[in-house]
Amino acid sequence: MTCAIEINNLCFSYNDFSLQNVNLNLHLAEQKALVGLNGSGKTTLFKLILGLLEPKSGSIHIFERKVELENLWEIRKEVGFLFQSPDDQLFAPTVWEDVAFGPRNLGMTINEVEQQVNWSLDIVGMSDFFNRSVNQMSHGQAKRVALAGIIAMRPKILLLDEPFAGLDFPMVSTMVDIIHNLRNEGISVLYTTHNRFFLENWADSIAVLHEGKMIYDGPTEHALEDSSINQQTGNWEELSLRMKRYRGIA
């Protein structure tokens, strides 16, 4: 099977943190969850994939093209990255201008930019907000606009850093639909989450990072049965029991 992302023996170190011999495969149209405790290296791995950080050794290939300085822009056209906080991403005066930023940089004509922006705002359900200032939106709305800014560039891979963090239920539900529709168009998705619900119900496969090492990369069902992996994803049943005990109902 062709790999959208192929990582081989990747090593990286910064101060006292390091990623050691990380291997990971993301297949075409696959939806993979990247899990791990805080500080396990998930965001660092994303940044390495995008060429924002340089690995010490090992290699990363995006559609068989190696991530290196010479072809970073070509790589970044293929991979869209949604930051955890939309405040880090939105910077233009209006929603329209922000979403148009990527298409303009791709060298599209004015008509194409217009078309792309309208399409992506429509997909995330923010068409009515096109003239709104990016300062005047709720967290959920800002997150949807940030996603529109990414998909307006028509990437083939989406890297989503905690896409559901801080969203209320209706917004989570909308986000799930948006990403599902994108996936139907053949986009591969790699997302991080701490929420077991999104592992059990939404991931085709799971990759688990622990203290800079990839301890698992495989089907979701196997991962959730493995107790050592459960420690990384969280033992929610045990926590649930403990909470009930505190409340005196178990």
Binding site: G80, D87, F91, N105, L106
Partner: peptide, 20 residues
């Protein structure tokens, strides 16, 4: 920290490659 994140976000969307 934020300026670094913003710069990274802009770079990923091709800052410097087109006429924004």
């Amino acid at each position: 920290d934020r300026s670094v994140a913003v710069y990274e976000a802009m770079t990923l969307r091709g800052f410097g490659h087109g006429m924004f």
